[in-house]
């Protein structure tokens, strides 16, 4: 029942680890998020050191997002053009965010900023999605014919975004934007993701829904496509520079997560876009509450291993 994890230097029940992979993979397939914001704390709860948990999580997200991207690609749900623009921005923002963290670590203010960013971003995104989806669900009850997820596509494009140069049509999403918009949003998410030490799926998904006005089913596939590349980069760099990827742990997690991602995709097809959004909002808010409680309640032991957030 137990497997020794050579880099984490610990032994874990492999059924528990596969189960965690299945759970987070399910979320990945359902919502198009990598699940890093959930998996890292879960791994720490079963005794995996924080740095190993975060890096290994990126490795398993490669498998889960590859599985999810494949499933969504077959369903025609991946906007590659948009994905690549976001990816370019994400890489630039990620590199910039890492430099910010380095500078802050030198001054000693990094941990505080990381925690606060986590709480504010998760809380804001979760609350916004929750109330927005709730409103949309109420409206769709009154007008059952309206496709609330697609309304954005026919909205009149006015204002700042429409005045930007390099306007381009994203066929798969059915939206027109300046190429600068997804790149800039990619940079923004990349900076925050690097500061928070996560892949950024839970930030990228709302950005695509509410700012890029992409339909929900394309958002999930495109987000998974973008996350796969981000996590490939993170896995390689963490293995190469910090030796913090536990390959055996990643294998156990990905056994669960690749199946979870497929099951999530199937369930996702049966749920309405707003139902998906409200479920994700509840999970994000739940994680926010957990982090706030950890911050304000005195821990049982006032020492921690070096490394990690």
């Amino acid at each position: 029942m137990y497997m020794y994890l050579p880099i984490a230097l610990t032994s874990a029940n492999y059924l528990v680890v596969v189960g965690l992979g299945l759970l987070v993979g399910l979320l990945s397939g359902l919502f198009g998020v990598g699940g890093g914001f959930l998996m890292t704390p879960l791994l720490m709860m079963i005794g995996i050191p924080p740095t190993i948990a975060a890096a290994t999580d990126a490795n398993q997200i490669v498998a889960a997002s590859a599985s999810g991207t494949y499933a969504h690609w077959r369903l025609g749900n991946v906007d590659y053009k948009m994905g690549i623009y976001l990816l370019i921005g994400g890489f630039v923002g990620g590199a910039f965010g890492v430099q910010i963290i380095k500078a802050l670590r030198a001054t000693g203010g990094a941990d505080f900023l990381i925690k606060i960013t986590y709480v504010v971003m998760l809380g804001a995104v979760g609350a916004f999605m929750f109330f927005e989806s709730l409103n949309a669900m109420r409206k769709s009850k009154n007008k059952p014919v309206a496709e609330t997820g697609e309304v954005a596509q026919v909205e009149k494009r006015t204002g700042f975004f429409a005045s930007l140069p390099m306007q381009t049509y994203f066929e798969k999403s059915g939206v027109t934007h300046s190429a600068l918009v997804p790149v800039a949003l990619g940079v923004f998410v990349g900076v925050l993701a690097a500061i928070m030490g996560v892949g950024g799926g839970f930030l990228m998904v709302p950005v695509m829904i509410y700012m890029l006005r992409m339909p929900m089913h394309v958002v999930v596939g495109t987000s998974l496509f973008q996350i796969m590349f981000t996590c490939i980069e993170v896995t390689f760099l963490q293995s190469y520079s910090n030796h913090t990827v536990d390959f055996l742990l990643a294998i156990l997690l990905l056994v669960g997560s690749v199946f979870g991602a497929q099951i999530g995709t199937i369930i996702g097809k049966k749920l309405h876009g707003d139902q998906l959004k409200i479920l994700l909002a509840i999970i994000v808010l739940g994680v926010t509450v957990k982090i706030v409680l950890e911050l304000v309640m005195e821990p049982s032991i006032l020492l921690a291993m070096k490394g990690g957030h």
Partner: peptide, 8 residues
Amino acid sequence: AIIAGFAV
């Protein structure tokens, strides 16, 4: 990880 993901 990629092979496992695509294979599944």
